[in-house]
């Protein structure tokens, strides 16, 4: 019980500290912008630890962060194998194939207005559907290994990327297109020099949304069948064994992989669309 009380005291203290920082003179500084969420996150973690210990919660309900960290450190080779299987082989290859396919389709769609008007409503509609449901079918077709996961990811990322690229390619103003015309520019000159660069903010929007979808697709597809390696496989098998520390360790890996994936795409976006008002800062 004292540990639980300590948890709430800690909470109150940290919250008071954050209020002081947030309303203090240094609130706008970079340090405060990083420090306040860090304090908040660490406090939650500490409370979690204290409450689990204080109430003596069994591991099958909620393992303490220290146990998860221990398990994480002890299982690095397994976690790495799972990461390679699910993220590198499944998610990443599917992501690249899906995005390239979407890009190719977007160019076709862009050249034929009829196709654009027909495919765009269909594409937006499909992009809103729970495509992860195709996983059992694709697992049946492409087997248990990563190929089927990549296929699920391809299907999941294709439509959001397609819709965003196509919307981006429509982004130019009439004046910009007229200007190209006064220079007697060819279709491809207009495409490479004007329309594709102008579309980049949209393209990256699609790529960012899809980076998260890719991981979800690769993990959930493993729930429908996988070899004895992979993050989704490990999660479902460990849940069955009530080894929740392992499940949490995999979730930590998923969180790191997800934010790193997103972070890399966002970093490239900053480099490519430095000129866009949202990036100039």
């Amino acid at each position: 019980m004292p540990l639980v009380i300590a948890a709430f005291v800690l909470w109150a203290a940290a919250w008071w500290l954050n209020i002081r920082i947030a309303n203090g003179p240094a609130a706008g500084s970079q340090a405060a912008k990083l420090g306040v969420p860090a304090i908040f996150g660490l406090t939650l973690l500490a409370m979690w630890e204290l409450i689990v210990r204080g109430l003596d919660l069994p591991m099958v309900i909620l393992p303490a962060p220290s146990m998860i960290a221990e398990r994480f450190a002890a299982s690095l080779p397994i976690l790495w194998q799972d990461f390679v299987q699910t993220v590198v082989k499944g998610a990443l290859s599917g992501y690249v194939i899906g995005c390239l396919a979407a890009f190719g389709t977007a160019i076709l769609v862009d050249r034929w207005d009829f196709l654009r008007r027909g495919l765009m409503p269909v594409g937006s509609f499909v992009a809103a559907l729970p495509i992860v449901g195709t996983a059992p079918i694709l697992v049946m077709w492409y087997g248990f290994d990563w190929q089927s996961k990549a296929a699920v990811v391809v299907v999941m990322v294709f439509f959001p990327v397609l819709v965003n690229i196509t919307a981006g390619l429509q982004e130019t103003t009439q004046m910009q297109r007229d200007q190209m015309k006064t220079w007697a520019a060819s279709y491809w000159q207009g495409f490479w020099k004007l329309r594709l660069p102008a579309a980049m903010p949209f393209v990256f929007n699609g790529l960012k949304i899809s980076s998260t979808l890719a991981l979800i697709g690769a993990i959930v597809a493993e729930f429908f069948g996988s070899p004895i390696v992979g993050m989704g496989f490990r999660i479902s098998i460990s849940v069955g064994q009530l080894a929740l520390d392992m499940v949490w360790a995999e979730i930590v890996v998923a969180a790191i992989a997800g934010s790193a994936f997103y972070g890399i795409v966002a970093f490239i976006e900053r480099k490519v669309t430095f000129w866009h008002p949202s990036q100039r800062g």
Partner: peptide
Amino acid sequence: TIPILAIAPM
């Protein structure tokens, strides 16, 4: 940015 769906089975 993270696949929080992974917590579902747990």
